[in-house]
Write a protein that binds this DNA or RNA. Sequence first.
DNA 1: TTCATTTATTGTCCAGGACAAAGTGTTGAC
DNA 2: GTCAACACTTTGTCCTGGACAATAAATGAA
Lengths: 309, 309
Amino acid sequence: MNTETTSFVSGLPIASVERETGLSKDTLRVWERRYGFPTPGRDANGERLYAPTQVQRLTQIKRLMDRGYRPGKLLALDDAALIALDEARPSVLATPDVLQLDTWMHLVKTHDSEALQRQFYRELAKRGLAGFVQDIVAPLITRVGEAWSRNELGIFEEHLFSQHLEKMFRTVLANMQPQHGNPRVLLTTLSGEEHTLGLLMVEALMVVEGVYPVLLGPQTPIDEILRAAQLKQVDAVCLSFSSAYSPTLAAQGMRDLRQMLPAGIELWAGGYGVKAIRKPIDGVCLMPEFQDLYDCLEKWRTEHGRNPV
Amino acid sequence: MNTETTSFVSGLPIASVERETGLSKDTLRVWERRYGFPTPGRDANGERLYAPTQVQRLTQIKRLMDRGYRPGKLLALDDAALIALDEARPSVLATPDVLQLDTWMHLVKTHDSEALQRQFYRELAKRGLAGFVQDIVAPLITRVGEAWSRNELGIFEEHLFSQHLEKMFRTVLANMQPQHGNPRVLLTTLSGEEHTLGLLMVEALMVVEGVYPVLLGPQTPIDEILRAAQLKQVDAVCLSFSSAYSPTLAAQGMRDLRQMLPAGIELWAGGYGVKAIRKPIDGVCLMPEFQDLYDCLEKWRTEHGRNPV
DNA sequence: TTCATTTATTGTCCAGGACAAAGTGTTGAC
DNA sequence: GTCAACACTTTGTCCTGGACAATAAATGAA
């Protein structure tokens, strides 16, 4: 019975578009009503069918929204203007190694897995873990994120890059298994923050410094963080926020958690997401830069008079 | 301003219930209309607020549905009858090792990380990777999921368990780095499916069989899967679905992908999520059981007349 | 400046009707 | 008895168009 309807009024149903673009069905319908875009066709039953080109444009719009533009503006623009926005590159990196980063970016763009992996380990051996993370990995992650939002890089390259990093960190960590160590730190993210890489980076840096980490993975509800902290008897909880996480939500979440957490357990927070938090939060140690992590650690150790091991 | 409204008419909003139970908002509303359950309260603005006990019951119902029961029956039952169904476990875990699983569950419940990790490696050495995955890991994941939905286990324990498994798989995989191998298989999940464990399990089993895996991680849009498959010149794309993923959406996604993918590249799908898909999909190899994976592989190899290495 | 308040924008929720896809049961042919 | 074709039931998703809360932007006051 499904003879040629598909080939005639072709296009993706709304559920597929939701999956592809990350825009909810409600949003897609309300945009159509308010802004006159997208303009899906209809199948025999009156259900929306989105043309692939429109889906592509929707993902482009979504990407620009993640960069801070608002839908009202974007949906009024034509193709040329959208592409112009894509090209606009506002950022300049503070790193001196811009040139070297370009070499790395080339490996990412050409998805040369083997070379990338080789380079990772070479640079790691050369700089040591801390230097490698600060000078290479962190700037590189930023660059990749920017390149993606500028459409120079596909999601595929970004995913592959993340997987290689994750593989490397987990291998390195597996070879550093600590049995003991102080302080004991619980590592996780709040619900809504899916990024694991930040946690792995922090864990690696901490293990080098003699910390005993408890990696919980991403997206733990606040009351479960509390329970975990008590059962695992940790000295501190460390959260990680990517730049995508709303600063307001992050601050609110930390206040909530701080209130429930016993005074004896410290609360630390790192990642690009905390750079956007201006006001300090009572009883929370914000670590926008890597250096702050070491400061936090040292402070804890002098206060508790304990050596790394 | 958010004084005590929350404590007065307490409950979860519909979006949270959707996230918790995996039942769509539409479904939740239509059940209420048709079956008279659930019976959420309303906030000042007339929006639904679900009592925690009802949410718990919904997850219970969802779990029973995954076992094959239909909502019409389940929603007519009272608490006692539901629990009775729960206890009746026909799932007779093909394993004779039910008793051993209980030992494992004890380790999970007491979050004894060291013992769990030790046991993993001991059992892995004893059974070999394939046996370990099929007889221990897979049933254990099911048990943990059931225990969680029965509230015998917290999110914290579930997260910790997942992290240990992930650590183990990545360590094992790092020590089996294949340079070549056939076929070349791309591993990922569709957008909306965040679970990575399934992918790691499949990767491990495949590497043992001489496959060259390309791990992309979770949540890749289909057009990026297509691009990745072509650039990495894979012979097959393998998707993984957890039981939380809607079978309808999974089937739709695979049809979308199959249509775009060149005929030369096969499409395979595994995980608990595919068990719920009854009708075969044209040009897609569904692998609800581990054995099917080996069948798929062998079929490809005889058709392409290539040996593992 | 910085903070508080108003106004605009934008996403989510609601109701209740409709229908297709999937499941169940029945009939009849082999 | 097995299987295929058919009708009937169940069930999830999609529809419209209105409403409103949450967020961001703009404005005014300290």
